[in-house]
């Protein structure tokens, strides 16, 4: 992680150096995009969210508290932006389709692909709060403490959401594997 460097870059941005912000975008575009992608599932939506997050970050850099880690701040914005997006999309057919359980294939040769699909589908059925914890733990490799700081929730809640989410994913995967082997 580049914590001290990030803070120096933020300070340079605040002094009007847009190149410093470009470095931050370079550094965080992949995790921000991937967090959004795992949260909302569609590439186009993830791209929109990533753009919004970076612009909001830029507009609010003066509110960034250097006591905290920059990645934690921008990841939180990404999660919040994704959850807001999901709230807005809830009523749309697109979201219903994305959240609907997928039919696992009975073809054994497709088992791996089915498992992958089942996992993505199960991720889509998790509540946004639970999904956020899974995304930060498994895709961004944050510790319980870092997730708690990022989401501004107690570590106990992080663990509770993470354990619940894993159990739900495990159930979905076990079921999918069982069906594909029948």
């Amino acid at each position: 992680m580049y914590e001290a460097e990030d803070i120096a870059l933020v300070e340079q941005c605040l002094q009007g150096d847009r190149g410093a912000f470009e470095t931050l975008v370079d550094r965080y575009q992949q995790p921000v995009f991937n967090i959004a992608l795992r949260m909302v599932r569609r590439h186009e939506d993830a791209e929109d969210i990533a753009q919004t997050v970076f612009l909001k970050a830029y507009q609010n850099l003066d509110r960034f508290d250097a006591k905290y880690k920059f990645f934690s701040w921008i990841y939180r914005m990404t999660i919040n932006e994704s959850i807001n997006f999901l709230d807005r999309q809830k009523s749309l057919e697109q979201f219903r389709e994305a959240s609907a359980p997928e039919q696992p294939s009975a073809d054994r040769t497709m088992e791996k692909a089915d498992t992958n699909r089942a996992l993505k589908s199960a991720l889509g059925r998790l509540s946004p709060d639970n999904r956020a914890v899974i995304v930060l733990r498994h895709f961004e490799d944050l510790s319980y403490e870092e997730i708690a700081q990022t989401l501004k929730i107690p570590e106990k809640t992080v663990k509770s959401r993470l354990f619940t989410a894993r159990r739900l994913l495990a159930e979905a995967l076990t079921q999918a594997k069982g069906v594909s082997r029948d």
């Binding site: 992958n116 996992l119 899974i134 894993r166 159990r167 994913l169 495990a170 995967l173």
Partner: peptide
């Protein structure tokens, strides 16, 4: 089940 979920997540 938890190990399965965790390992599948790591494959994404």
């Amino acid at each position: 089940g938890l190990v399965l979920a965790s390992s599948e997540l790591s494959r994404l």
